[in-house]
Amino acid sequence: MDKLIEQFSLGLFVWQTVLFLALVLLLRKFAWKPILEAVNNREEGIKNALDEAENARKEMQNLQADNERILNEARTERDGMLKEARELKESIIAEAKEEATIQANKVIEQAQATIQSEKQAAIADIKNQVAEISVGIAEKVVKTELSDKDKQIKLVEDMLKEVTIS
């Protein structure tokens, strides 16, 4: 300890203090501040970049989820539309069928009515023709029958026989 105190040099102490303080101040201005700032900025840059990447990833996930959702919606919409169309189609078909039946029935009815009226007309015609022909025949028959006297008498007799008074 004695030796230590004896060895102690005030000059060296003063020099060391002065030089070291100067070194601290100089280095603070010209080295440590810029270095630490640069390192800090770099670290923050890296951190920000990482955060951004993470955000982008999340956004991507969100987008993907959105896409999925939209796709699902579209799918259900399509299904709904298809179902609606099918129903529409069925209803149209049914309606058409009904209409067709009604129309067909009408046509049939009309046809039947026409047929009936034609039939009536034809029957009437036939009746007329038959009547005419019968009259003609009757005329001819009468003519021939009445051409001779005997036959006339016979006819009258026959007729009288038939018309018996009962």
């Binding site: 070194l23 010209f30 440590w32 270095i35």
Partner: peptide
Amino acid sequence: GLLMFFMFSRMAKKY
């Protein structure tokens, strides 16, 4: 001190 000043100020400049 000189060595350190030279070393670290050069290093700082490069940043």
